[in-house]
Design a binder for these strands. Structure first.
Lengths: 250, 250
DNA sequence: GAGTGGTCTAGACCACTGA
DNA sequence: CAGTGGTCTAGACCACTCG
């Protein structure tokens, strides 16, 4: 009965916001503040309804949207959980490279180097850093059945990833985003990719064991966390002789 | 041997289906049977609730899912409408090629040819046709500011597209899927794409005005209609010197 | 103002999980 | 069994569109 939250009346355009959107925003901030950590269960719908002084249906709609955005995962009979990158299910959303035949297989990782340096201008701009802010650059090769398939060139704001070293990377099992989330509290929410075809430069060709000039898929990924803050720029070169990048349009 | 009579074969569970899912299935069949045509308004929620003898909330949930799948479009105050490809909004979902700078621009179309022929085996298999079933093959070039960017090679089941000719294609304004929908009652629902990098063969290179061997993006798209029935196989070759294929991961 | 979709509530009941 | 999410209902009211 009591409409709990109101909007400032002075604005000419009050920008009506439904209650469930306000609840969603509150829950989002709980996620961002890590009040609920990755993999943990959040309070039950009834409990949240009581906390926010709204009906269960209203928090339900807020949770529905957060689940649709892959920030939460509902499990009937068990509860609602904060999504985590340390899960089989989640990795597939970001693993777009598929072998021509057969199931996607975990690829062997080979670290080339991991260095701290100053951000080149284009990198700095993409990551919303000041020019020459410190960044960590990671390069690696992914191989399938002994054949190199992917050459990754990864740029991370050093300030967010203090203490990231080659050892930490090499020692870690599981997806890289899982490491980011568990060790640095940086959770990747969504990403934008720009895909091009280009010819292999000599250095990349050698690392990928292809002829110089061979066609490669260039996948430039900008990963974003809460509030659309960029946290990673990754440029992958894929050989597409025996693999393809899959996409679904709907 | 005739199969055993009247015994449900080892179904593990009766597969509980919520009411709103059943309503959704009924509405889906209304869409498939074109009881409601593209662009038209469907009956109001209250009317549908009465027709199906359920509450408004239940049909609402069914509509919600159909809208989430882009089959319906809700417009507050006006009604709920059958999605159509003859809309600005919809085209952008399938237009993944973006210029490096500036907004996406409508590209000029140049038809190369449109021929009826027998389906090669790989095409037939992808389209779920019998080998050597008749297909219509369309080839065209898309240009931006006078520069060829895309070379499309499109295969359509002739049975579904009776009467499709070069003239019809050339005369048509707007998106090709709009033509399919309006003239042939074939509505594309979703599509799967396989993306690779390859070197331009001499013929394609000439049509795209690039050097033979230049790297090109190969985008193989299988378009599906209701019931995941394949209705189009399209192989596009994109030059990515001034454009890129954009993708969003979430 | 009438008609549409959108929000919110309160309550009942169902399906699933795990102790 | 208790506790969770999932479904369904009926009704009230709000926001938007258009004549």
């Amino acid at each position: 009965m009591p409409p709990p939250v109101s909007t400032p009346p002075a604005a000419p355009e009050p920008a009506f916001s439904p209650l469930y959107q306000q609840i969603k925003a509150l829950m989002l901030s709980s996620l961002q503040r890590a009040e609920w950590g990755p993999g943990e269960a959040i309070p039950s719908e009834i409990e949240l309804a009581a906390r926010f002084k709204v009906s269960q249906g209203t928090v339900r709609k807020a949770i529905d949207e957060l689940a649709a955005e892959n920030l939460l995962v509902r499990r009937q009979g068990k509860g609602t959980f904060v999504a985590t990158h340390a899960e089989e299910r989640v990795q597939f959303r970001f693993l777009r490279l598929m072998p021509d035949d057969g199931e996607p297989t975990n690829m062997a990782r080979h670290l080339i180097d991991c260095k701290r340096q100053r951000a080149p201008v284009e990198i700095a701009r993409a990551l919303h850093l000041r020019a020459s802010d410190p960044v960590i650059r990671v390069r690696r090769v992914l191989s399938s059945k002994g054949t190199p398939i992917v050459l990754d060139d990864i740029w991370l704001p050093a300030q967010l990833f203090k203490g990231l070293t080659a050892q930490r990377l090499a020692a870690h099992r599981g997806p890289m985003y899982g490491l980011f989330e568990a060790e640095f509290g940086v959770r990747m929410i969504r990403a934008e990719e720009k895909i091009r075809a280009l010819s292999a430069d000599p250095a990349s060709a050698e690392l990928l064991a292809v002829a110089p000039g061979a066609p490669l898929l260039s996948v430039e990924r900008l990963s974003l966390t809460y509030g659309d803050k960029p946290v990673e720029l990754r440029r992958g070169l894929y050989t597409t002789g025996s693999h393809y990048y899959r996409n679904e349009l709907s």
